[in-house]
């Protein structure tokens, strides 16, 4: 495999108010990621983006986002109706061809346009599930209940995850929820869908992120401590939630194995655990012990610009190597109901 590194990352602070057009969210992050990378814009070999037209509310809405790249003269680009983490994977594959050395990856999400508890039903199987309108929080709640029933974890354990995430987010200027809380005060709140309360669920945030990938030695020339992508894999579980044990994530386990998570110690893991209980399922699936620092950014529980969240996890993992001096970190992205799809990426320092 050709060695490919992340050399720059930029993200917009999650915006719970919404209202900013997607392309305007993207302009500052795309410009900043390119400027920090040191690669002249017109030399970028490939551009790949992730966004969701259902969230933007118009077919082919993603085309407008290309204006943020200054796509003239015409550029070579691709778009995924997925989290930007999958755009990163496509860019990594594209760089394996060897004919280009640089790629720009970006992602944007505007969930503030929508009532997500209705709109996200449209991603479900249209015959068995969607006619019942099982909102995404209730589907997550079925998974949470399955986990608590199997493992003996309690709602207090879930609240403790939220307490830790919000405390960690105090040092993350891009988080929109942070602060000191106690589990007992959080547990006073009513259920949204039992056993999940509002604090167990992600905030609804608009946001955007961008990064630049560079292959080979050029990454070392451009960047002090680039983060090398040493493993990346994506797996999918069966789509109907009733045919699998919801308390475990076989697809996350497989993605972790194929990305080579176990080939060395992991110092930090940035997991796209949008719901509190998902962190427990993912820790188990990826074999992460207590020695692994999970979501020092506060994670998706504190800012969740849907379809940019996974790319931001990879960006936060990059920061751990580039700015914090870590040697080996893990980033995870997820898609679909009940952690149906999982992508795992292992980043290493030189």
């Amino acid at each position: 495999m050709r060695d490919v590194a992340i050399v720059s990352f930029s993200q917009l602070r999650g915006d719970p108010e919404g209202g900013v057009p997607e392309v305007l969210m993207l302009v500052p992050v795309v410009l900043e990621a390119i400027e920090k990378s040191g690669v002249p814009r017109k030399q970028i070999g490939f551009t790949c983006s992730g966004s969701c037209d259902y969230l933007t509310g118009a077919p082919f809405a993603f085309v407008q986002n290309l204006a943020a790249t200054g796509a003239w003269p015409p550029i070579s680009e691709s778009h995924l109706e997925m989290d930007g983490a999958w755009a990163l994977q496509e860019a990594w594959v594209r760089l394996q061809h060897g004919d280009i050395d640089t790629a720009l990856v970006f992602a944007s999400g505007r969930p503030s346009n929508s009532d997500l508890r209705e709109v996200l039903c449209l991603q479900l199987d249209p015959y068995y599930l969607m006619p019942l309108w099982p909102d995404y929080i209730s589907l997550a709640a079925l998974q949470a209940q399955a986990l608590l029933a199997r493992t003996g974890h309690t709602e207090k354990d879930l609240a403790e995850i939220v307490v830790r995430a919000r405390r960690a987010a105090l040092s993350n200027p891009n988080a929109e929820i942070s602060g000191e809380f106690t589990a007992s005060e959080l547990l006073q709140a009513p259920y949204v869908s039992s056993p999940l309360r509002a604090h167990d669920c992600p905030p609804i945030s608009d946001g955007a992120a961008a990064m630049v990938l560079v292959a080979g030695d050029r990454a070392r020339d451009l960047c002090e401590r680039p983060a090398w992508i040493r493993g990346i894999d994506h797996r999918i579980d069966a789509q109907y939630p009733g045919v699998r044990d919801l308390s475990v994530s076989p697809s996350a386990r497989l993605a972790g194995e194929h990305a080579g998570v176990g080939r060395g110690p992991v110092e930090v893991a940035e997991l796209a655990a949008a719901f509190s209980h998902e962190e427990l399922i993912l820790r188990e699936a990826l074999g992460l012990g207590d020695e692994v620092l999970v979501n020092p950014s506060g994670g998706a529980l504190c800012s969740n610009p849907m379809v940019a969240t996974g790319l931001i996890r990879i960006g936060e993992a990059f920061r751990q190597i580039h700015e914090q001096g870590r040697e080996r970190v893990l980033a995870h992205a997820s898609s679909g109901p009940c952690l149906q799809q999982n992508l795992v990426c292992v980043l290493e320092a030189d």
């Binding site: 209705e118 309108w133 709640a141 079925l142």
Partner: peptide, 12 residues
């Protein structure tokens, strides 16, 4: 498995 919903949404 189950999840209790105290306040149903309009489309439930």
């Amino acid at each position: 498995g189950f999840s209790w919903v105290e306040e149903p949404l309009p489309k439930h």
